[in-house]
């Protein structure tokens, strides 16, 4: 038996991947495996349109998840997003039904979510209340507003909306995406830029890393914290509009529990729940993982759609465990 030398104890092999990238890479690998499984099992799965459909079906969720990424990066959580999505869709539908012109409806719809987010952020910061409870209140409030607007679903017949819903942007082979997908991509690109290249973005990471330090380093903690909830509200509002494009209606009970799917997607995408580490790119992968699971189960046809939830539950658990293990190893 030989004595362990210090270099063996403290040394790190040169090829080791930086630990901060491990969760995102794991998600990427998982996505590839799932896609490979799909392609090997179902002939139609390799069709490009399958991928496009995943984006079309989940575009609104992607946008909401991007907003959630900001919040989780600061170590917070936003439970109100599902309700805000529904409320935005309801507001659009009811205003359009009342004959309000489409551009004005868009503006109003885009203001509601950020306003609610701003208020929640301010309460969270200045009254030092847990984000969980404040946004839970926001969630009930927004959901209540939905039923206050209408107890039943309101169809949308406005030409601007129906155009947006039916517009197909595609290649000559007939593969296409919807306008929603382009909007979602724009949101992703802008968000990635903000996080990497602006002070707001870097402050978001700093607060998630150590809020006390951020304050002592003179960073605008209050502004940043309020900003992330406002951003999340804005993303939820955009998500709500995209959802109303997708369903051409506003329904009071749509997107119930969506906030949980979104949180799952963000975490599976490698953003650490305690904040300070993660990327928008990871969130895109996280949403895709959820979308591909759904597609696989649809392709199978024999499985109950609730299997989606079971698989997401298992994955979420696995990823939280992975993050924890990395955290422990760091110590």
């Amino acid at each position: 038996m030989t004595t362990t030398t210090p270099s063996q104890i403290s040394g790190r092999p040169w090829w080791r991947i930086p630990q901060r990238h491990v969760p995102v890479l794991a998600t990427g690998a998982l996505l590839l495996v799932m896609y490979a499984v799909g392609v090997s099992q179902y002939r139609a799965f390799s069709n490009v349109q399958v991928i496009f459909n995943v984006f079309i079906d989940n575009g609104f969720m992607l946008v909401v998840a991007v907003g959630m990424t900001f919040v989780i990066l600061t170590g917070g959580i936003d439970l109100s997003v599902g309700s805000v999505v529904a409320m935005t869709a309801m507001v659009c539908a009811s205003l359009l039904q009342a004959g309000v012109p489409a551009p004005l409806v868009l503006v109003i719809a885009l203001l509601i979510g950020p306003t609610l987010g701003f208020l929640m952020g301010a309460v969270i910061h200045f009254f030092e209340i847990q984000p969980f409870i404040v946004t839970l209140a926001g969630m009930f409030f927004a959901r209540g507003m939905c039923t206050l607007i209408s107890k039943s679903s309101i169809p949308i017949t406005d030409p601007f909306w129906t155009d947006a819903a039916q517009q197909r942007i595609g290649d000559p082979k007939g593969n296409f995406v919807s306008i929603s997908v382009l909007i979602a991509f724009a949101v992703v690109v802008v968000a990635a830029y903000v996080l990497a290249y602006t002070r707001l973005g870097r402050n978001t990471y700093a607060i998630g890393g150590n809020p006390q330090s951020a304050l002592l380093m003179g960073l605008p903690v209050a502004k940043t914290r309020i900003a992330v909830y406002t951003i999340s509200g804005l993303c939820a509002a955009i998500g709500g509009i995209l959802l109303s494009f997708y369903t051409l209606s506003g329904a009071p009970l749509i997107a119930v529990g969506m906030e949980l799917d979104v949180i799952a997607a963000v975490v599976i995408g490698g953003t650490v729940l305690t904040g300070g580490s993660g990327y928008v790119f990871g969130t895109v992968l996280g949403v895709l993982v959820l979308g591909v699971i759904q597609t696989l189960i649809t392709f199978d046809g024999s499985l109950n759609s609730w299997w989606t939830k079971i698989v997401i539950g298992g994955l979420l658990f696995a990823f939280i465990l992975l993050q924890r293990l990395i955290g422990i190893r760091k110590k």
């Binding site: 901060r20 990497a196 290249y197 602006t198 002070r199 870097r202 402050n203 990471y205 700093a206 998630g208 890393g209 150590n210 006390q212 330090s213 951020a214 002592l216 380093m217 003179g218 960073l219 300070g276 580490s277």
Partner: peptide, 28 residues
Amino acid sequence: YQEVNLCANLSVAENIFIGREPRTFGAI
């Protein structure tokens, strides 16, 4: 301060400059 009041999850360079990063049109 006594306890290092920096952010361990950011790079060394960022910890030195965060809050006053060199920027062009808002881009770091």
